[in-house]
Design a protein around this nucleic acid. Structure first.
Length: 510
RNA sequence: GCCGCGUUGGUCAAGGGGUUAAGACGCCUCCCUUUCACGGAGGAAUCACGGGUUCGAAUCCCGUACGUGGUACCA
């Protein structure tokens, strides 16, 4: 049995958003699960829409998601080139072959001619023009024209396209791994253009030829391709490759959270969440849109979240590492219906991943965030302890700033409002005594700090509970954060005393 | 318009003839924590509708509605 080979074929026209990454992910999981190959093919057949940099962006995004193996996607099995524009010559050859076999024909109608015809039909109230079996004999093509006329046109350099010739009432059977057995007829499909006037193939020709040449065994793509699946199946048949046809699976769409439509790039801005894995600059508006990465997502969480959108293992497990996903993945368990994207749930995945990740894993990511705020980390061990202490309360990596900045910088704003109403001279004296006691302390472990704190409170007949809040605010600036004594312990003696003194100086000596 | 695909709480979903119809997110209540989270306990909320088939339908069939995709020399 031949080894599994799946291919992912993004088009470098607009970056790569959620749906695309998920398609890549499912392809990758399937390939890894079956110890097969993942082939990345770049669908740049429409040069007019090609966006400079998009290809690089796609590769970087997949790398961030750990979907590309370290050695690159195409190590094993040399079927290069993988960029469609570089494979131009292959397609023409097969398109011509189809014409010879009578399954395709040359068409000379210009786009404008077709457009006007379309308009006319529409204004006459007729349904949309389908360049197919009903009308092809009235059009300008090698079927309606004589051999001589056709040759003359071609030899004189008239631009032409090659269209597939699809007969009516033909049955096409598709066994989809997700949707099951499907039966369609050819009445709804028109004579698709296979080779454009510029010599580039359309997607229809390109997928079939490349999948054949690259020995692809499984073709998974978005559901938007289902309506044109009969064209592709027919192409496999007409080219005589039917026995090599890959198994198909059409993945459900990711939909807008608020209903109505496939998730698009605009929805992110509109609804306030990212739709790109990495930051992306829109080629038209030049506007930079933050990605999941910049928002503080861990790639593990991003991938996990994406995998659970349309797939589940059939168990109650929701948190999966990449290796676990690979082990559990099965294309049959992918849903057949679209799923609305829920950013709240996405954040929940991130929170879970931050909680379960070691401080070692988190340290480099958090370090970057702090560096952006001009905070440099000198003591790595202490840094990891800080991460361990606060990570449970961070949903996004960027939350580490808010949750831990006071370990590195004295709080800018101290919430005196929360201290003042219950402040009195006894409390003031308590803290003065606390400073004295702490400065003499031999151990700076949090248990000792707590012990002496409570002891002093007891001696002064004060409730420790009423003193802990002011203490916390002195250290962190507000009513939040982990246990006060742990904070004090990590802060160190000098800094702790400094912060108590500072706040005390702001409070009245009543 | 035509064609395709789909429809289980607000969202993700398990379940595929007999179930008290799992679980998760979000929301609410309580406990824990002398802060905020984490954690724990509980709660509200669902089989789109109408017909069949069947002793019995969320589950099978047919319609309808709704959603979604395609209908390009875009992918």
């Amino acid at each position: 049995m031949s080894k599994v080979r799946v291919r992912f074929a993004p088009s470098p026209t607009g970056g790569l958003h959620l749906g695309g990454v998920r398609t890549a992910l499912f392809n990758y999981l399937f390939a890894r699960k079956h110890d097969g190959n993942f082939v990345l093919r770049i669908e740049d057949t429409d040069q007019s829409r090609y966006v400079e940099g998009a290809e690089k962006y796609i590769i970087e995004s997949l790398a961030w998601c750990q979907i590309l193996p370290d050695e690159g996607p195409h190590k094993e099995g040399d079927y290069a080139p993988y960029r469609q524009s570089e494979r131009k010559s292959f397609y023409k050859e097969y398109a011509e072959e189809l014409v010879q076999k009578g399954h395709a024909y040359y068409a000379f109608d210009t786009p404008e001619e077709i457009e006007t015809l379309r308009h006319r039909l529409k204004s006459e109230g007729k349904s949309n023009l389908q360049y197919g079996h009903q009308v092809r004999h009235q059009m300008k093509n090698s079927l309606s024209l004589s051999k001589e006329e056709t040759d003359t046109l071609i030899n004189s350099g008239t631009p032409y396209v090659i269209r597939i010739k699809i007969d009516s009432d033909e049955s096409v059977y598709l066994n989809d791994l997700i949707h099951g057995n499907m039966h369609m007829d050819t009445n709804g499909v028109d004579d698709k253009v296979l080779l454009k006037a510029d010599g580039m193939p359309t997607y229809h020709l390109a997928v079939v030829v490349d999948d054949y040449l690259m020995k692809i065994t499984h073709a998974f793509r978005g559901e938007e391709w289902l309506p044109s699946a009969p064209v592709h199946i027919l192409l496999w048949k007409y080219l005589g490759w039917e026995s090599n046809m890959p198994k198909w699976a059409h993945l459900p769409l990711i939909l807008k959270p608020d209903g109505n439509g496939k998730l698009s790039k605009r929805d992110g801005e509109r609804l306030g969440f990212p739709v790109f894995p990495l930051g992306w600059t829109d080629p038209v508006s030049k506007e930079y849109i933050k990605g999941f990465k910049e928002l503080g997502f861990l790639p593990e969480a991003f991938v996990n979240m994406l995998a659970m959108l349309g797939w589940n293992a059939g168990t109650e497990q929701e948190i999966f590492s990449m290796e676990e996903l690979i082990g559990n993945f099965s294309i049959e368990r992918v849903h057949s219906s679209g799923a609305k994207f829920d950013f709240e749930k996405a954040k929940w995945f991130n929170h879970e991943w931050i909680k379960k990740s070691d401080p070692e894993r988190l340290a480099p990511e958090v370090k970057k965030i702090l560096q952006d705020k001009k905070v440099m980390i000198e003591d790595d061990d202490k840094f990891k302890n800080i991460i361990a202490l606060v990570k449970d309360r961070c949903t996004l990596l960027t939350d580490f700033w808010e949750q831990a900045s006071y370990f590195f910088l004295a709080p800018e704003k101290i919430d005196l409002e929360s201290i003042l109403p219950k402040w009195n001279n006894d409390k003031n004296l308590f803290f003065i005594e606390l400073i004295r006691s702490y400065s003499l302390a031999n151990s700076w472990a949090h248990a000792e700090l707590e012990h002496s704190f409570k002891e002093i409170a007891a001696v002064n007949r004060l409730k420790p509970g009423e003193l802990m809040l002011p203490f916390r605010i002195m250290l962190v600036g507000g009513k939040f954060g982990p246990g006060v004594f742990e904070v004090a312990s990590l802060l160190g003696k000098e800094e702790t005393l400094k912060r108590i003194r500072h706040t005390l100086s702001l409070l009245p000596e009543k």
